[in-house]
Design a protein around this nucleic acid. Structure first.
Lengths: 351, 351
DNA sequence: CTGAAAGCGCTTACAG
DNA sequence: CTGAAAGCGCTTACAG
């Protein structure tokens, strides 16, 4: 067997060598110090352009990839971005996650996902766990968090962008956030229903998260403004939102309040379920009762009749929030702390 | 102002101190060496029970939490588990992710998610990125990967469990996997349709991933066994699966092959779209044509008629795979390398 | 069973 | 602009 001779710097190996190509390997090959390689690779200014070039070429020639753990330990900052969403069973949040994740990954960040199940203390616990990884940034759903969570976010000093919600006009704090005016969307859809001649418009909701409650408020104020507000037309169910529940709620509403001439469901899955129930029950939509949803989820355009709803820009929210976070993580200040991406009423057949 | 005296060990601080409570802090307070604290906390055997007790109590008293980055750097193994799924827009995979993630988190692992978009080279790239984080384990969808990906998985030495698919009986390699027999499920559903008297059963599919093709094979063999196989009744569309596409395919099939008496859609979203299209077109289901789906996705039980489909145990797959991975990460050998979680035909109204 | 020491692979004051 | 040195907070041979 031939006696293979290892290259000099490979021959000397500690008992814990990992075989990985390290910063020092690059430094040695490029004839500079490790510090310089580190600076050159991270694009830190104050490095001779000639050296930058040399280091980069040597680095890619050797196939060097920085070790995230070592980097995190030394710099006290990882390439993780933590994202907190309420549920994975609502496509709304999955769309948010998908978009944010794509954008962040393209910039070299790994997404750490946390599912809170709408539970404030679970959110706190998740955040605590994620913070251990020293994330470079934070994406959280909504503006409502318990005091402990808020304190964690603050004391961690990690840049943070809120998703979906926008603070009220008079809000004292001005957190970074990307979303749209939920309240305004709620009243806009209600005004649309009013404009089609409907007078007895019910609001049917499940889950009852803060954003749903804002839509409820929008519905209320629009009806009040029109002088047709009727408190007993609020149907609020804290159970998780689903097609099946939408069907059940629709049946109940039609039974209890047969004179209702329109129903605003707080989410499309409920409205889709209602549409299917109407079909089963032989109730004509929209002639007997109009049905409207919210979010324009998958399948809403395939219903019979097609579902009138509000298109919400969740993919764009995820993307814009990720971009804003990227800006913050670079240490720059975003042009504006709040981004309102708006909404659009999709007038289809059901209302 | 009173001159506050810091406790001795806090007074001596390096210029890069982070304020974090470290292993050494615990060691000092417990009167043992850092090595012992490390061993005691990780439950490594060969530590005096008395010391373990003392270390644990001191540790929790001080609120010590190990630093994942330092741990990963020193041990060459992080508490991350990487998971690779094709899409986030198919609830099937989200269910898988959700279940796996919950199980892993309960065991102290952080999930690193990668979305491959059914692209082999994107999968390879994602795996490469994830491997940088030295994951303790790997969860990947399916058994089909390009050679480079396979090699990465192997040379990384990271324990790996495959989701959804099970290897053929004659497979040489016996990878760890949790899933069910896709082919068998395809033929079982087909046999069910045959048993209801259907003779001209079409197979309609989109996306055409490996599992869809296995169901196709199941459909083929069942029809061949019954002597009614008809190749022109295969409708394969590589586009992404969706309700809208299901509607379009249904229209096409009914137009091109009006004599078809049943359609097996490879996924429920397609079947749901077909059901809505049938409603629009006034085609009676199941009397004129039976419709069956696959996976029992959200809403299938709310359709009109309700959708006959195959219930697939994706949440249980995610959970069982996570448990198997946990076993492997402990260095133990799972009782069996393959787990078949089966499937169930849900006979509802549409077929 | 326990501890001192080295090492994991980077970043970052500090000095020049 | 560059480098030597220390340090991030752990784990793990090695020796006892």
């Amino acid at each position: 067997m031939p006696h293979t001779v290892l290259p000099p710097h490979k021959a000397v190996k500690s008992h814990r060598a990992t075989g990985r190509i390290t910063l020092s390997d690059v430094a040695r090959a490029a004839g500079v110090s490790p510090s310089t390689v580190s600076r050159a690779l991270r694009g830190e200014r104050a490095v001779d352009p000639v050296l930058i070039e040399r280091v980069q070429s040597v680095s890619s020639k050797l196939g060097y990839v920085p070790d995230p753990a070592a980097r995190a330990l030394a710099s006290q900052r990882s390439n993780h971005v933590a994202i907190l969403i309420p549920l994975l069973s609502n496509t709304l949040f999955v769309d948010l996650l998908d978009a944010a994740q794509n954008t962040l990954r393209a910039a070299g960040y790994q997404t750490l996902m946390g599912v809170t199940h709408y539970d404030a203390s679970e959110e706190e616990q998740l955040l605590r766990e994620q913070l251990l990884h020293r994330p470079a940034g934070l994406l959280v759903t909504g503006l409502d968090h318990n005091p402990a969570t808020r304190k964690l976010m603050e004391s961690s000093q990690v840049p943070c962008v809120h998703l979906m919600d926008l603070p009220g006009i008079a809000a004292a704090e001005q957190p970074y956030c990307v979303g749209f005016q939920q309240t305004e969307a709620g009243s806009a859809l209600t005004r649309y229903l009013l404009s089609t001649g409907r007078k007895r418009i019910a609001f049917a909701a499940a889950q009852l998260d803060p954003r749903v409650m804002q839509r409820l408020n929008g519905w209320r104020s629009a009806l009040k403004a029109a002088g047709v507000y009727e408190p007993t037309l609020e149907f609020l169910n804290p159970a998780p939102s689903s097609l099946a529940l939408g069907g059940v709620m629709f049946e109940q509403i039609m039974q209890q309040r047969p004179s209702v001439d329109a129903i605003f469901f707080c989410n499309d899955d409920l409205a889709q379920g209602a549409l299917m129930a109407a079909l089963r029950m032989g109730i004509a939509v929209p002639s007997q009762v109009a049905i409207a949803g919210f979010n324009d989820l998958t399948g809403s355009d395939q219903m019979l009749p097609t579902l009138t709803t509000v298109r919400t820009p969740r993919a764009r929210i995820g993307e814009a929030a990720a971009h804003m976070l990227l800006t913050l993580m670079r240490g720059e200040v975003p042009p504006s702390a709040q981004i309102d991406l708006g909404f659009e009423i999709l007038q289809r057949q059901s209302a």
